[in-house]
Simulated scan of single mutants.
Amino acid sequence: MIKAAIVGYGNLGGGVELALKESSDFQLVGVYTRRAPKDVKTYGAKVYSMDELLAMKDQIDVCILCGGSATDLPVQTPEITRFFNTVDSFDTHAKIPEHFATVNQTAIENNTVSIISTGWDPGLFSLNRLYAQSILPSGETHTFWGDGVSQGHSDALRRIDGVVDATQYTLPNKEVIEKLRLGEKLALSTRDKHFRECFVVLEAGANAEKIREEIVTMPNYFADYDTTVEFISQEELDKNHKAMPHGGTVLHTGKTNQNHHQVIEYNLSLDSNPEFTASVLVAYARACARLATEKQFGAYTVLDIAPKYLSPRTDEQLRKELL
Rank of each mutant, 00 (worst) to 15 (best):
K3A: 05
Y284C: 10
D315A: 14
R212K: 14
A156P: 04
G152A: 07
S117V: 01
Q262K: 13
K242W: 04
A287F: 06
S311P: 09
S154P: 06
S233M: 05
I96S: 00
G148K: 11
N11K: 08
A107E: 09
G30W: 10
K295G: 00
S23A: 15
A5D: 07
M218I: 01
T277I: 05
R158Y: 07
S126Q: 08
Y48T: 08
I135L: 15
G162P: 02
D58L: 09
P312V: 05
V250S: 02
G123L: 00
D58W: 09
L28V: 04
E98F: 11
S117W: 00
R159F: 11
Y284T: 12
T228H: 01
E140K: 15
L28N: 01
E316Q: 15
S233K: 11
R212D: 08
G119V: 04
F276G: 03
Y300M: 05
S311R: 10
H260C: 06
E236T: 10
Y225L: 10
G67F: 01
M1W: 12
N259R: 14
R159G: 04
T112L: 00
A243Y: 00
H241N: 09
T167L: 03
T190M: 12
Q151Y: 02
M1K: 15
T314N: 06
P78K: 14
L182Y: 13
G44R: 06
G205K: 14
L268M: 12
F276H: 10
